[in-house]
Design a protein around this nucleic acid. Structure first.
Lengths: 332, 332
DNA sequence: TTATCCACCGCAAACATTTGCGGAAACTTT
DNA sequence: AAAGTTTCCGCAAATGTTTGCGGTGGATAA
């Protein structure tokens, strides 16, 4: 293996100083064209590549973003990740992926890793058990911006990029109203999560404000299996609902298993509407499910934009949301 | 913000040399217990954290693995990624995620990034267009092991971790035979891919060797939509197949949309069997789809194990496969 | 008393790069 | 010819850590 090309290496071959070579390669005005030529030439010949670690040490920064999520294998996060990675790459950044497994201790370790690697910034979706977000804010002391996304802390002043949870649920409710439905079974997710609370509140209040006398049944399910069970219980009643609203992809899959099991026809026997992250799950079914989209892709783009703005000096705290939209399938 | 703790910093406070402090913190036998105590104490008090960049520069290595995949948002890769990340974390490694977007140029850039970051090793699933894998093997010159997984180069001698494609298809065929089916529609993926070829060959030959006179119809579909169309075309024939075999999750989703649209009952009207990466897609349907599992999780675990072995000195070239198994649902 | 040994610690180089500052020529101006 | 200006380049420090080697002081052995 040929010896690795370094500035020192090149400088000695050309009887120049290291600093001159360094400047020549960066096209510094102090260096004459002639010298630049020679340096460039030898550098390309030797396939010189600057040592990232040395640069990182010198500049106390790296061109890497940290990304901390509870789990990767999730309807939502991987599209977010894909989106951020793609855009970050174009800007010369890479992505360090850390899973916390919904464990605050691991989350803290991962945060530490980000600190130790002097990442350029951190994207984080906190676990459902994270109470103390001071450690996150402490990264500001190192000039490492922290952007919370999706699962964000409730109160503290920090940069948050959220889905328009309330808006999405309201949109879904409006769609139900528009179709003149009379009795809606709403299945929400884990009642502890703020995302659940926001969506529940918005959905319920939108329906009640419509003054159409729609009857609303509300349940909470933290797994698809629970959603399946709930759906079944309500559908075998004599006075069964005419519409089911699922709060998320996860819930929707449970609902649909139940529907299939009972061989109910959609939307004839029962109408379905859901909030989903993209068209993947909705389009698995026939007819395609009508859903309100809260896009992980868009969230990713917005989060990265906010990050770059922050790095560019706009360091004020900001809370942004990505709008949602109704995607009509044939299930409502 | 308090001044950052460094070895230099600590050494000056204690009137010790940098080297002594460094060794004390590593529990080096040359240092007396007394000194170690003092150093440790001050280090924890000052919340000393070793500078990763400096270590990386010094050791010319980093505790980061590179992971290059065509896309993250894929039935398969994110479970692989999740699995590798989880295990790597426990060993003190992190994961740098790079998407190539099925573009060999970007793939090459990503590979370069891995080199520049002096990653500890690279996991790569090549794009379908990658012709030249010499750049990958060149990383060996830097003592960076490269483990190919899933989409691996055909010929070259390199470390490969694959799914047991042929075995999986054969298992599926055997299941069909065991159920005494008479007419099977097999829908494969993109005919260009080696994974398709392997599965097609194994499925067809297993069926023909059974001497049960099973009739086999074979089609290729590169999208779920195509699979949906094919399914429909064959199922409206008077002499329709009694079983459909889908080569992948993707194909299966297309088949099932069609089945739902025609309101066929499974397995009464028609039986379904597929090859899938995990139970996610199969369990979306009712009855749950019978499938042969080629687990991304297991592949991840095996890949990481191979990587660690390689780092531990077992640098010989090896080709491993993860076994597959039949998971009985109710669709066959 | 001298030689030997061990426990403990520091020196300094090395890793590769960036950058403020200063300095030597060469050239221009008065 | 002296002074001032520009062009081009090198010195050296700084980033934080690791590690081979050498050195000192005390204890033990001969």
């Amino acid at each position: 293996m040929r010896t690795k090309a370094t500035l020192k290496n090149i400088s000695q071959s050309l009887n120049l100083s290291i600093s001159t070579v360094s400047r020549a390669l960066k096209n510094h005005p102090d260096i004459s064209e002639e010298t630049k030529q020679k340096v460039m030439e030898l550098a390309t010949l030797l396939e010189y590549e600057p040592n990232t670690h040395a640069i990182n040490l010198r500049t106390n920064r790296s061109k890497i973003f940290g990304l901390i999520v509870p789990v990767i294998s999730n309807y939502f996060y991987h599209s977010f990740i894909a989106s951020v990675e793609e855009d970050a790459r174009k800007l010369g950044y890479s992505l360090l992926i850390l899973q916390s497994g919904d464990d605050p201790m691991i989350e803290l370790e991962n945060l530490k890793l980000c600190r130790l690697n002097r990442v350029a910034g951190v994207f984080v979706s906190i676990t459902s058990l994270t109470k103390d977000i001071k450690p996150f804010l402490k990264l500001d002391e190192f000039d490492i911006p922290v952007i919370f996304f999706d699962k964000v802390p409730s109160f503290e002043a920090c940069n948050k990029i959220c889905l328009a949870d309330a808006e999405a649920a309201a949109l879904a409710a409006q769609a139900v109203i528009a179709k003149n439905k009379k009795m809606v079974l709403a299945i929400y997710g884990n009642a502890e999560l703020s995302i659940t609370q926001k969506r529940q509140k918005a959905f319920a209040s939108t329906l009640s404000q419509s003054a159409t006398g729609i009857q609303l049944l509300e349940c909470y399910a933290s797994t698809p299996e629970e959603a399946e069970k709930i759906t079944r219980e309500y559908c075998i009643m004599t006075n069964k609902p005419d519409t089911i609203f699922g709060m998320s992809d996860e819930i929707l899959t449970g609902i649909m298993r139940s529907i299939q099991k009972m061989k109910l026809s959609v939307p004839g026997d029962i109408a379905i509407i859901s909030i989903c992250n993209n068209n993947f799950i909705p389009s698995l079914y026939e007819p395609t499910i009508t859903y309100v989209e809260t896009s992980g892709l868009d969230l990713g783009k917005l989060a990265l934009k906010r990050m770059m703005d922050h790095l560019g000096g706009k360091t004020f705290v900001q809370e942004l949301t990505v709008p949602s939209r109704l995607v009509e399938g044939g299930s409502l």
